[in-house]
Simulated assay, not measured.
Amino acid sequence: MKSFNIHLDAQDLAPESVIPIDLVGLQGQPDQHALIRAGAPAPVPVAELGPYEIRAPLADGRIFTAVVTAPSTEPVLLGDTLTEVPPPLLEMPGHQHAAAVTEVRTASLLDSAWMRTWTWADRTWEPTQVPVVVDTDGPFTTTLTLQPRSVCAVQCGASGFPARCTLLPPALSLALEWHLTENFSPSSFDAGLALRLRPVGPMPTRQTDSHYLDSFEGFLAAGYLDRAQLMAESLIEDAIDDWKTKAEYPLPGLLAAYFLLYTCQYDRLEEWSSFFADNVCWLSDAAVIRASLLVETGRGDSTEVPHRLRQALHGALPVRSSGLRRLHSLLDPDNPFVADNEELRQACTDLRPYADAAYWETPWTTFRGTPPSPSTVADYDIPSEGHQATLLRGRSSGN
């Protein structure tokens, strides 16, 4: 089989980002798909020789394109054509696609950046200190190291800018890039500081390293499920390994389970969702995914549904925004499994303040206020009450 090298320029992309590409035959050759990493030439095999149009759509709406004739000995550099991407091909029930964040300036320009963290323990949010490293060389970034089998929330803010609280995905290390949205104004609580979360660090035992997970999550959040489908199988294989090891940081399994739920691959999710909910019971998303599967497959009258809802309520909030949305929908008092259950009816009331304060366009659960007390009024200054915030301004990597 012949092949040619494709070089996707890593400028404006995270190094080693994984990008699904389409190879469209221009003279009747069969279309093909491949995965490449940004920043280095990658050999791509083709079944037949001739000219191909190469398309590399990104989660942020750009498409890199080039035309090449196979075989080719020189690497093909894909250039940004600023082509508009059509709407997602598949719709996801109960999911709102993540809004694109236009970066205007980074938080390094702010007068006073701060953050504070909580960990869910014994059915309550406990103030905690999480190891943090601050990098101001590029985009203002804080890197956090998380404890295994735990749900952590972080509130970030700065003087003059609204604070948001975000629940963190279950990964060993996370990089939080701080940005300001384009339409920020002090009178609008729906704009201001925005966090981009991505897993970092090596994952040597996995096919899906942190770059792979970050790329997949980007397509998933943007709603480009056709792109995510090309990457899903490796992720699912790693999630199956998580079954066997009961992973302490089950991010691959979490993303894979949501993907199968979004794409209605219920047969594949059936056994998986039960195991996930039983063995990762500290993560509310696992119980929400299982309850959603039961309801969507016509088993809403099962006694397992209220059991899974109670399980979710005993944990922290779902870390995925679509999980919070699904939980809120499942707890609708009109649902028969809620109407006759006083505990679940009360839970709906208790959850409503978080839903009212949520930013639904963010992929990870984000709301105004603090985890113990969501609020429709955002804090502007460094908190004077509760546990102390960590001041970030002026700190650099290694400090």
Results as ranks from 00 to 15, higher is better:
Asp111Leu: 10
His97Met: 08
Ala339Phe: 11
Leu180Asn: 05
Ser185Leu: 12
Leu146Glu: 01
Ala66Gly: 02
Thr65Leu: 02
Val130Asn: 00
Val338His: 07
Pro372Cys: 05
Tyr249Lys: 08
Val280Trp: 12
Asn341Leu: 12
Pro75Tyr: 10
Arg116Gly: 00
Leu89Ala: 13
Ser3Leu: 09
Thr83Asn: 12
Leu78Trp: 07
Glu248Leu: 15
Gly157Pro: 03
Asp379Asn: 12
Arg55Val: 09
Glu177Lys: 06
Ser150Pro: 04
Thr263Ala: 07
Gln27Met: 10
Pro45Trp: 03
Ala100Asp: 14
His97Pro: 07
Trp272Cys: 04
Val132Trp: 02
Val68Ala: 14
Arg308Lys: 07
Ala389Ser: 12
Ser292Asn: 08
Gly192Pro: 03
His95Phe: 13
Asp334Cys: 08
Ile19Trp: 03
Gln207Lys: 12
Leu392Ala: 02
Val280Leu: 11
Glu233Lys: 08
Leu220Phe: 07
Ala312His: 06
Gly253Val: 08
Val280Arg: 11
Ile54Glu: 10
Arg105Trp: 14
Leu144Asp: 00
Thr65Asp: 02
Asp226Lys: 09
Gly201Phe: 09
Ser273Leu: 06
Ser321Thr: 15
Glu217Asp: 14
Ala312Gln: 05
Ser274Asn: 14
Ala40Pro: 01
Cys281Ala: 13
Ala38His: 02
Val288Thr: 03
Arg268Cys: 08
Thr65Cys: 03
Pro51Trp: 01
Cys264Leu: 09
Leu168Thr: 01
Ala191Arg: 11
Asp332Thr: 00
Ile236Asn: 03
Asp301Gln: 12
Val295Tyr: 14
Leu176Arg: 00
Arg198Cys: 09
Leu330Asn: 07
Arg206Glu: 12
Leu23Ser: 10
Gln29Glu: 13
Arg368Asp: 10
Asp9Arg: 07
Pro88Trp: 00
Pro371Ser: 05
Arg105Ala: 15
Arg326Thr: 13
Ile289Met: 05
Thr205Asp: 14
Pro363Leu: 03
Ala228Trp: 04
Arg206Cys: 07
Ala194Met: 09
Asp278Thr: 11
Ala191Leu: 04
Arg37Leu: 06
Ala277Gly: 08
Ala113Ile: 04
Asp226Leu: 13
Val44Leu: 09
Gln147Glu: 13
His328Trp: 13
Leu13Arg: 13
Ala40Ser: 12
Ser17Arg: 15
Gly79Ile: 09
Arg368Phe: 11
Glu53Ser: 11
